[in-house]
Design a protein around this nucleic acid. Structure first.
Lengths: 244, 244
DNA sequence: GACAATTAAATGTAAGACAAATGAAAATTG
DNA sequence: CAATTTTCATTTGTCTTACATTTAATTGTC
């Protein structure tokens, strides 16, 4: 593992990159201990703070974990889906908010992805996920729910739908798309009527999931997307009309 | 922006978290300059190296960028899709390799996601993406191509398909799924016959994309997944038989 | 006014020290 | 001898200080 002395980038970035490459390439395996900070400093011919900055970069990506004490050190971390979720969600959220992604574009992507797991979810759903979906529908029906709580429940409903596919890779990829939509959804005010429409469609989805009817889930998701897009358009149009 | 003195976690992690939260919450906007390292050290009542470790954590996630010199400092970075791609791909790759995700599961997720953008891609594809797909098909047909190069071309073909949907959110989410499959695909040896089958299906996809026929794209993707899964199974079965 | 040298401010890097945690070995005790 | 306590070495976490490097603004000079 070497670094390029002619490279102009930060030493800590170069070192982090070298170690990251070694991990990705499988030269460093899970739970393997890296040399101590002092040893790494010697190997790379840099100071300990520089090594530490490199290790912190890797820790921020959950590629390593550190442990103090006699047998401590930096260990290659088994990157779990659970650990990767928050990162994925933070990144997705910032991507949407910082790149002026339109509600329309984000919504389209979200529902396209959800439809991707509709047939699998209908086929494999467990009683557990179905119960979650029913529970969230029940919560959404309660009067006096704030818009924010309604959105949170909406996210929970759709995550249950995604998880019903029983494919961790799909769940991981979609967590970002679904959760990152929440701030955008929070910009919308839900009238009693629009909530009714959404709850009705959610119920139809749950019923179709229960009946293992993938096609029906798919069709209802299309209707739900149309409903959501129309609702957003009307809210944004009203807002634009008020402040010309 | 404060940190909890009773928290047992690393100071640098706490500081990084506090700044990250401020960015996500919109309290720090894009291109805004953070206080200098010395000032941050004062504010949080820690030393400069500790602040630096925190900033490196954020830099590793592309949340900030740093600049040297008189008007330098740490600035909130506009997280672009281009910057987020490599991270997403690295994370996805490690998730698959470290969690014993079966080829079957990963493959299923990948094709489910691709089918999600099939109708959009068929509808919106530009001449550019179609040309890329044709070019990759041509490359895949050449004899003497290594398995690795064949896989790389396969990835390029599918990325073009995804990008044809002209939805950056979809492209971002799928980049991880498609690229992360490459190491798994590289475990497969492609016979001349299996390459022919894949090229034929790729050609059918390109034709359907050209004809704006989303249904045909979808159906062909299903066939391609079946072909890929069968090929993988036979390769793995043969390998298992050789080393009992 | 244009150009060059200086300066100030900021990050990048180094070196050394101490604190705190932690497991292992050694010493102590029943 | 076994169990417990103490000591100790190792390693990360943090602080302090210092210097190098980069960069833009300032100043000085012609």
């Amino acid at each position: 593992m070497k670094i390029d002395p002619t490279n102009s980038a930060d030493l800590s970035a170069q070192i982090a990159g070298a170690i990251r490459d070694a991990i990705v390439a499988g030269q460093l395996i899970v739970d393997e201990r890296l040399p101590s900070e002092a040893e790494l400093a010697d190997q790379f011919n840099v100071s300990r703070p520089t090594v530490r900055e490199a290790l912190k970069r890797l820790a921020a990506q959950a590629l390593i974990r550190t442990q103090r004490g006699a047998t401590g050190g930096a260990f290659v971390n088994r990157l779990s889906f659970e650990e990767a979720y928050p990162q994925q969600i933070t990144t997705s959220t910032l991507l949407l908010s910082m790149n002026e992604v339109s509600f329309e574009t984000a919504c389209e992507a979200r529902y396209a992805l959800e439809r991707a797991c509709a047939p699998l979810a209908a086929q494999r759903r467990s009683a557990d996920q179905l119960a979650t979906m029913r529970a969230e529908i029940h919560r959404q029906s309660q009067p006096g729910l704030t818009d924010e709580a309604f959105c949170a429940s909406d996210v929970a409903f759709h995550r249950a739908l995604v998880d019903a596919a029983h494919n961790p890779v799909l769940s991981y990829q979609l967590a970002g798309a679904v959760e990152a939509m929440q701030p955008l959804m929070n910009m919308i005010t839900f009238t009693a009527r629009s909530r009714d429409a959404i709850v009705t469609l959610h119920t139809a989805i749950a019923n179709a999931i229960e009946a293992h009817d993938g096609h029906k889930v798919n069709d209802t998701l299309i209707a739900l997307e149309r409903e959501t897009q129309a609702l957003a358009q009307s809210v944004f149009a009203a807002r634009a009309a008020r402040t010309p």
